[in-house]
Design a binder for these strands. Structure first.
Length: 869
DNA sequence: AAAAATCGG
DNA sequence: GGGTCCGATTTTT
């Protein structure tokens, strides 16, 4: 939002890390800075929030102190050496300086508030803010005179400015306006980069070139004299703009109430200069310079939306961003593309103005006597010794006025998350429920971008505003609500248990997914799919379409069920009713849907090939992933194997265990059945071998219990061991099996069950209920999983593995199996030495031994190998 | 890899 | 009358 970007006036900064000068002179209305601070402090003091702010401040101070100590130890010799190195680097940077691009940063003025004022005349000339009583996203300039800013809670804003009108946000409307603006921007740079609804970067270098030979009429625009511009007096462009901007002009803002301001004076000095756009009657012609282009853009934006924008023009994004702030609102500023102009601009620029330098960095640098970019440059050697490489590189870039000169096609996203603040939630059932809702939400977002990832992070903020995050990485990518929840639930559970007997008193919960496969991984996947498609090319399109409709069908109900959220329920005090059955249905459909396009593809392949072969015939195929021959009873079984191999590194390990070991192919097909990802249709086969795996698994569990969890750990606090037994039975099956959810006669179902049931069951062996023909048995905990979803089942296995059984096992069994490869070090193909990870971990944060396929191909296998023998 | 801190909007 | 955000990335451990 606009107001947060005015860093020096940022509300949060004012609270504790007081910085910068609020040059807010007391106008006829409004408050001076002292008064503002006093009111804020009175409203804040003594609150839990404030307590946490103090705590955070102390931490920052500690950090600074550490830094100063480090600084004290630096010898002048070290410094000289650093100086040479840094200067060499600076030289290189200087040589690569590129002034040939013209970058523009466009920034809508007080965007949300401006839209609201435009659409509701009553709000004009009044202090308004968009947001809620608990949080504001932006305020208009009138309200800012009272110290009302973005990221300020509404109730404090009200104290600062009792007349303040708080308008709830209309994001759809803002999006629509934003789209209108973007349509204009695209004319100047089709590849422009939108940073948010109200901000964008453009590279107009090419447009400028083309524009040089444009005839005048191509740069001519007619002035629309709409109703909304009633005060307009044709003939002077500044007037036309003034109606709206009167209320937002800084001149007015500082010195006089908006309605008293005389019209007609040019409000933006640098807007109207020598080479004015020609104004002929009702049209206006813009020139060919960058400045003119940006005036044109802003003119068009205002004509189209009745909203004003500010802009910065510079040779790179970093500078353009700072520039757009300089003459805000409704102004623009250019840094000419020569080194001297850049350096002049930079010279006295406070580093805080630069994007990426926040209040903490500012404070740290301030402790070193650095406030402006010049000082930043002067201290470059010292900084290189006190900060990480990336940090001081960044600093050096800034102090030289460098920044990116091309608009990087938005780099691949690294994570995606949802989080929510609510009034205190302490009941575990509600917390699990919340957790699930967030997972569903996240899954939907993920689906929109088709993302899958391996690391799930849960974020918890308690009523004292203390934030905790807990993460777990699994071996294969996940994306559905069920998969994510299965893991998030465990993370949440360990936190709840850790606090026992006290409840977690939460005010916020969040779920995040990261570790997305990188390009290489994806290419690999694609090429494999391509490989399989080679046999039947028409399949691809069919599969894609099929999956699309698939999604559409099943997503809808989920979305609807989702709308009525936990919060709504809380509010209406209604406990779970029929609505939940609806939810379960939706969720379960979703879980059935879990087919990836790949699976769809395989189905298709099956249909196609069924004509030529009987599925009962045993055939030999070569798996395109592990390159082992697979003697499968059916093509489908084979496909399941391939799927498993594809599914990730859990599989890659397992396939190495099962398929890539030195076993004969007959052995392979047997072992395949114990594979966590084995096919449902292999069930019969599976049962014949079940005994085997049962013995080994039981063996393992016992080993863990006797050796690592002495009986006394059974007490209330010692829950770590409880987990290893308990997780498995209560995992996905219980919470998501549609039969159980919907046939449950009691009206309390689903999540509440999840929490309470699993806790009841904690120390009991799992009791088999109705054994459906879709039962899968987890090879780790050896307990039957009542899920028909293979991916979900795999997630369960992952969680089981993560719980630490393996870790314990490894320690003991690794020695027993005196294979030559069992050493504390191993070497991969590239000859690099690798550590074997045997770090003991606290439960709940186990490192997956699988890790990445590329870097640790060896170690994991051994463990599993031993484990399953 | 996990957890915490930082940032910007 | 109590009520202080959200999503992403970077840095630290």
């Amino acid at each position: 939002m606009d107001s947060t970007k005015e860093k020096n006036g940022n509300y949060k900064d004012d609270l504790l890390l007081r910085v910068g000068l609020n040059d807010n002179k007391a106008g006829m209305e409004g408050l001076d800075k002292e008064k503002i601070n006093k009111i804020i402090m009175e409203a804040t003091k003594g609150s839990r929030f404030y307590g946490n702010e103090l705590k955070k401040e102390k931490q920052v101070n500690q950090r600074i102190e550490n830094m100063m100590q480090q600084k004290a130890q630096i010898t002048s010799q070290q410094l000289r050496k650093a100086q040479l190195q840094v200067d060499r680097f600076a030289m290189e940077l200087e040589q690569s300086r590129d002034l040939s691009n013209t970058i523009v940063h466009i920034d809508m003025d007080a965007f949300y508030a401006a839209v609201e004022m435009r659409d509701n005349p009553e709000l004009k000339d009044k202090p308004i803010a968009v947001g809620s009583m608990s949080m504001l996203s932006t305020s208009n300039y009138y309200a800012r005179r009272f110290g009302v800013r973005a990221a300020m809670p509404g109730f404090i804003a009200k104290r600062l400015c009792p007349q303040l009108i708080i308008v709830p946000p209309n994001f759809d409307k803002y999006r629509a306006v934003s789209t209108e603006v973007k349509e204009i921007l695209a004319d100047y740079d089709p590849n422009f980069m939108a940073m948010s609804l109200d901000e964008a970067y453009l590279n107009i270098t090419q447009h400028l070139q083309e524009r040089q030979n444009w005839p005048e009429d191509k740069r001519k625009y007619f002035i629309k004299t709409g109703n909304s511009l009633e005060n307009e007096k044709p003939g002077k462009e500044a007037h036309k703009l003034s109606e709206h901007e009167r209320s937002t002009s800084p001149l007015l803002f500082d010195d006089s109430p908006p309605d008293l301001h005389p019209q007609g004076i040019p409000l933006q000095v640098n807007f109207e200069e020598q080479n004015n756009p020609q104004i002929l009657q009702n049209s206006i012609v813009f020139g060919t310079s960058a400045e003119e282009v940006v005036k044109e853009i802003r003119f068009r934006i205002e004509q189209k939306t009745t909203l004003t924008a500010s802009a910065g023009i510079a040779p790179n994004t970093m500078l353009a961003k700072v520039c757009s702030d300089k003459n805000k609102p409704n102004g623009q500023y250019q840094i000419l593309p020569n080194r001297q102009a850049v350096m002049d601009f930079i010279k006295n620029l406070p580093i805080r103005k630069v994007s990426g330098i926040g209040k903490v960095t500012e404070k740290m640098l301030k402790a070193l006597g650095i406030i402006t970019c010049t000082e930043l440059y002067q201290q470059r050697a010292l900084l290189s010794l006190l900060f990480s490489e990336t940090s001081w590189h960044h600093f050096l870039h800034i102090s030289l006025g460098l920044g990116s000169t091309h608009l990087a096609r938005d780099g691949e996203r690294k994570s995606m998350s949802v989080e929510r603040t609510f009034s205190e939630v302490s009941k575990p059932e509600e917390q699990y429920s919340l957790c699930q809702e967030l997972c569903s939400e996240l899954a939907q977002d993920l689906q929109k971008e088709g993302l899958k990832g391996r690391t799930i992070t849960i974020k918890l903020k308690n009523v004292n505003f203390e934030v905790k995050t807990r993460a777990s990485t699994v071996s294969s990518v996940v994306s559905t609500a069920e998969e994510i929840f299965a893991i998030a639930k465990e993370l949440l559970r360990t936190e709840i248990d850790a606090e026992f007997p006290h409840p977690l008193r939460l005010r916020l919960m969040g779920i995040r997914l990261s570790s997305f496969p990188n390009e290489e991984d994806k290419k690999q996947q694609r090429s494999i799919i391509g490989f399989l498609q080679a046999g039947n090319q028409t399949l691809s399109a069919a599969g894609y379409i099929l999956e699309k409709t698939d999604k559409d069908q099943f997503l809808k109900p989920l979305e609807i069920s989702h709308k009525k959220s936990f919060f709504d329920k809380k509010r209406s005090e209604r406990k779970w009713s029929h609505q939940d059955t609806f939810k379960c249905e939706a969720v379960d459909k979703q879980s059935l849907r879990t087919s990836h396009s790949f699976q769809v593809l395989k189905k298709k392949m099956n249909e196609n090939s069924e004509t030529s072969e009987n599925s009962n015939n045993s055939q030999i195929f070569t798996c395109p992933i592990c390159f082992r021959e697979q003697r499968s009873i059916s093509l489908e079984a084979f496909n399941k194997h391939v799927d498993a191999c594809l599914d990730g590194s859990l599989i890659s390990e397992n396939s190495s265990v099962f398929s890539c070991s030195h076993a004969s192919s007959t052995e392979i097909s047997k072992k395949e059945n114990v594979h966590p990802s084995f096919s449902l249709h292999e069930k019969q086969d599976y049962e014949t071998h079940q005994k085997n795996s049962e013995i080994s698994s039981v063996d393992c569990v016992e080993l863990v219990e006797t050796e690592d969890n002495p009986p006394e750990a059974e007490s209330v606090g010692g829950l770590s061991e409880k987990h290893s037994k308990e997780e498995c039975p209560s995992l996905p099956s219980r919470s998501f099996n549609i039969a159980e959810c919907c046939h449950n006669s009691s009206s309390t179902v689903s999540l509440e069950d999840t929490g309470s049931l699993s806790q009841q069951e904690s120390s009991q062996p799992y009791l088999h209920e109705v054994i459906t023909d879709q039962a899968l048995v987890c090879p780790v905990c050896n307990l039957e999983q009542k899920t028909s979803d293979l991916t979900l089942f795999n997630v369960h296995v992952d969680v089981c593995l993560n719980k630490g059984i393996i870790q314990e096992l490894r320690k003991d069994k690794v020695n027993l199996a005196n294979q030559p490869r069992e050493s504390t070090q191993s070497t991969d193909n590239s000859g690099r030495v690798q550590k074997t990870a045997t770090k003991p971990k606290r439960p709940g944060s186990m490192t997956k031994y699988s890790a990445s396929k590329k870097t640790k191909p060896n170690n994991p296998r051994h463990t599993l190998d031993v484990f399953f023998k």
